[in-house]
Computed example of a mutant assay.
Amino acid sequence: MMTFPILKFKDYLHPRPEPKKIDVSSHLQHFALITYALNPERFKDIIPPRFKLDTIEYQGQTMALMSVVPFHHVDFTSAVYPFAKFNMGQIYYRVYVIDQHTQERCVWFLGAVLDSWTLIVPRYLWQLPWHPGNVHFECKQNTAGLYDVYNMNMSSSWGCAEVSLTQNEEDEWQFEGFPNQESYQVFLTHPMAGFYHRRDGQLGTYRVWHDKLCPKPAHLIHVRFELLERLQLLSFTEQQNPYSVMIEPINAFTVYLPPKVI
């Protein structure tokens, strides 16, 4: 049986690289990580040979992890120059992988939906697999900062999505397959490089930076991700049983641009 290594935040946290030129910054509000454990065979035609799935032992099986990540940009803007700020909803679909060229833990993006006219830049100029859609959040936090209500609805021709979550003080951490809670949190929250197939078929990548993220456990009420059903990764029934769910009310990201073609 594989033993997962111990991961520590101190080995992954570092000062923010100085932004330049067209790098951007944003605060990500209502940041959720809805994570699923899947049989690696389900990704056999999705993940390129350069990458290997970053797996854990879960319920007696070797499993790959994939997260759906909805959030709302509240001030997307230049990280360098005074510039207009944009608000927009977004949802990512990402699989946790290891780049076999560098041995870096990173993510493979299945794609994303962005609710903004600014989509024309990543979609058409940089050929990212980002798709248009309408993203709406209905959220209510209590005095402890936990979410009594977390609803996200997204409509898109690429695949609609519904998310309904809630939080309370009794929600427990779930990190089966990891040696400890910190390893689980580092694994899910600190991949800084993302890779994807561009819309023209080439391999693309970009990097981000953020400080330590501190999401807390949450509870899934209901979800529906049409994309995961269409790709035969998770049926609608399977989607109701995630590996774990976490929410962080807000955090800060820097994105280093433009993306690169490999």
Score class of each variant (00 low, 15 high):
Val223Trp: 02
Ile47Arg: 07
Val68Ser: 03
Ser235Tyr: 09
Glu18Gln: 13
Met154Leu: 15
His197Gly: 08
Gln239Leu: 05
Lys260Asp: 06
Val255Lys: 00
Ser164Gly: 06
Arg94Ser: 02
Ile98Asp: 01
Gln61Phe: 08
Asp211His: 10
Gly201Arg: 03
Tyr206Lys: 03
Pro17Cys: 06
Val245Thr: 12
Thr189Pro: 01
Tyr124Leu: 03
Asp171Thr: 11
Pro40Tyr: 14
Tyr81Val: 12
Val80Pro: 04
Pro49Glu: 11
Phe76Asn: 03
Lys52Tyr: 10
Asp23Ser: 04
Val74Ala: 05
Thr143Ile: 04
Gln29Glu: 13
Ser164Ala: 12
Leu233His: 02
Tyr206Cys: 04
Glu170Ala: 15
Pro49Thr: 05
His131Ile: 07
Ser25Lys: 10
His222Arg: 08
His136Thr: 14
Tyr196Arg: 00
Gln239Met: 09
Val24Ile: 12
Val24Pro: 09
Lys140Cys: 07
Leu228His: 08
Pro15Asp: 13
Asn153Asp: 11
Gly201Ile: 02
Phe236Leu: 15
Ala161Cys: 14
Ala252Trp: 12
Val68Asp: 02
Pro49Gly: 08
Thr143Lys: 15
Gly133Trp: 05
Leu125Ser: 02
Val149Lys: 09
Thr77Asn: 07
Leu257Ser: 01
Leu28Cys: 04
Phe51Leu: 01
Gln167Trp: 08
Asp54Val: 05
Pro191Gln: 03
Lys216Met: 15
Trp117Cys: 08
Asp200His: 11
Glu138Pro: 09
